[in-house]
Amino acid sequence: MSLLKDLTKGIYRENPVFRLVLGMCPFLAVTTSVENALGMGAAATFVLICSNFLVSLFRNIIPSKVRIPCYIVIIATFVTLVDMVMNAYLPDLHRSLGIFIPLIVVNCIILGRAEGFANRNPVLNSVADAIGMGIGFTMAMVVLASFRELLGNGTLLNINVLGAAYQNQPLLIAILAPGAFILLSFILGFFNILEKRKGGRQ
């Protein structure tokens, strides 16, 4: 049962972005379109699962003094792997994610889960945790990206939703840098209200 709990907690209760406010840099930067958000989410989830798996597998072998450098090397290896594979098979996505692929290394969610969960939990639970956190991160990015793409460009997944008339005069600020901050602020505020409602009822 705890396996299921580890899997689902990342999606809402401990959502890395909306609840823990981690991994902000890629979250804000790549959410200009839903496509980018999905690509980034997939890349980060893959790295998260692999690093949690290895860290958990070797948690009794890696000396605690050098555990952080070891985790960083493990994470950086998988990030480079994703970078190369994406460049070979998905060059367009690789191009639009740009510098944020190497920066998955310093995404605090991944190091945070290695240090905070995988190094003291069994392999299966760690992988479940990674999948849950990855899905939570991806979902959060898709939510913000949907708002930004829809308002700023009138499209969703590059399909025109709001019509050509809107596209000529879209709410550009949403897709520019300030839009990311402001929309995130409102989403976080919304989650706070939700939490409070829930707390009040119990």
Binding site: T32, G98, N153, P170, L172, I175, L176
Partner: peptide, 9 residues
Amino acid sequence: LFQQETPGL
């Protein structure tokens, strides 16, 4: 061929 300008602009 290549650009990373502001999306939408």
